[in-house]
Design a protein around this nucleic acid. Sequence first.
DNA 1: CTGAAAGCGCTTACAG
DNA 2: CTGAAAGCGCTTACAG
Lengths: 335, 335
Amino acid sequence: MSLGSVTRVTILDVAAAANVSKATASKALNDTGRMSADTRARIRRVAQELGFRPNALARSLVSKRSFTVGLLTNDTYGRFTLPVMAGISEGLIDHGVSVFLCAIEDNPDLANLHVEAMLDKQVDGIIATGRRVDRPLPVDLSHLPIPVVYALMTGPADAVALVPDDRQGACDAVNYLIAKGRKRLVHVTGPGHFKVVVERLEAFRDVLETAAMSMSETQILTGAWSEQWGREAVEKLWSQDNPPDGIFCGNDQIARGVIDALREKNVRVPDDVSVVGFDNWEIVAEQTLPPLTTVDMNLKELGRQAGQALVRLVNGEVLEPGIVKLPCTLVVRGS
Amino acid sequence: MSLGSVTRVTILDVAAAANVSKATASKALNDTGRMSADTRARIRRVAQELGFRPNALARSLVSKRSFTVGLLTNDTYGRFTLPVMAGISEGLIDHGVSVFLCAIEDNPDLANLHVEAMLDKQVDGIIATGRRVDRPLPVDLSHLPIPVVYALMTGPADAVALVPDDRQGACDAVNYLIAKGRKRLVHVTGPGHFKVVVERLEAFRDVLETAAMSMSETQILTGAWSEQWGREAVEKLWSQDNPPDGIFCGNDQIARGVIDALREKNVRVPDDVSVVGFDNWEIVAEQTLPPLTTVDMNLKELGRQAGQALVRLVNGEVLEPGIVKLPCTLVVRGS
DNA sequence: CTGAAAGCGCTTACAG
DNA sequence: CTGAAAGCGCTTACAG
């Protein structure tokens, strides 16, 4: 066994060293079958000494379970997918399952290539995730012979999907502003055709209605997901009478723009105006002046649960199809 | 073949349908062996019609090649790893190889768990990547029976590693400032114990020496990788006589802090002071006012090349060990 | 309590 | 030009 040709030790080596058949060795190592405790212990010890590690490929070939899953994503730069992926990986490794990363961009051909590679490699299931909750991946996953879970994204009606509870997160944010005694609330958010925008916006409206607070026409401003838009919104709001004393922003970048613009106007945050963001994008939220109070979507946990849902499906459990909404958390900082 | 028990079509089905042995079918499909062009074509057509897809597990078991690799990373939130991973995935899928994502945090046990899972699953090789070029992963990869490539990270001396050419990137940045006619240059960067800090800092010094520009004691300021530090550095510099007219920042966050602080001081960028960052973190660089000129490390390309280096090693090619430095690109924007 | 045999889905010498 | 046999490294009935 030279360094050049490292020939791994197989179950046959273990069996030989322990003076049993490979069948018995297999049973001993898998804790199945019947045999004397002594034999079992001896075989295991020998396996240990030899550094035996079963070839997962061979095992999968017979068991029809590869303990691998495919993770499809079209988000190659974003900050949302990475925590989701980390959560998936963490939640799955304990079950011995490994995750294939498939970066498919928005390219249907690439997506198909990856899906076929996954199928060929006999993955036990697939998790689909992406940049936008309301934009499907460029590939149809609904007729696959294996279970599929959608994370941070919705699929067909009969599929299992996990998304953050945008509504609850937004409600918490607005209620926080109200609890702070803010009376003139405004929502500055992203493009109106994003589903998350609609959900957060409706939550904003509903909470205000419930609280019976006065509503002006301009209380909801939609625009881009950018600092620039946050700045512009402040210009607009402060060119009017009676500017707000509480601003709920659709994401942290907008909030950042809002806060920077306010500072330049010498409007004090949080003394004159309270600001709440969305995403808890820490690298931004923590460096904002003052540090940004914002909604965390708990994406890592979402990933973990997506992984767990998938293994349950793979194990034959039947899960109620539909969209599971996972709670968001308000992270209170200084704004 | 009901929907409930989807039994995939095997090579035996193809062989039967084409009236040949499975051996012949195999050869036809793999374009090996000798047979009449007719037979080959017929078998292929039949396979196509039946939607035959070879079971990669079975194939790998005999070929000793799984066409999978493991990707170890301890960067679960950062913005560096994601483009690297995307590049790896893209560069590898064309070769039919899939990538296992292993998020190992900085946990040695977790890292070992993943490495063993990779070995069990017979990956052909491993790519190690992480948050910091100069911080090794919490696991020893040097005695594995499979090739290892380090990306955005250095390994043992005899290993193949790919990192950005920090020195060249920094030189480009400083030369750009000089070309803009800037005479009093300062470098505001991260913690001095980071290797990338040292490399960029030395490049800064060397370029200035070559250009024979006057050097004061305070021209290099080290601190945190944060906006906050960028702001503080500006305070410090502008409390002295003769503040700089060109600032090269160690990363984009520092640059962002610098530019924000300058704007608040009514110092005009780029009219009074030019600022260059490092990382080309687009979401920040593009929203800075003015948009930030910065150095791009071409991480996706780095990932792609890391993947390619690994397949070459897997194929038995011998690559010169050592650290390959990949060029950075200066992205000129408005600062 | 243990082992021989068959089989998972392929490929690869080898024979004819 | 084509096929029978052996084998990759395991597991799982089945016999004894």
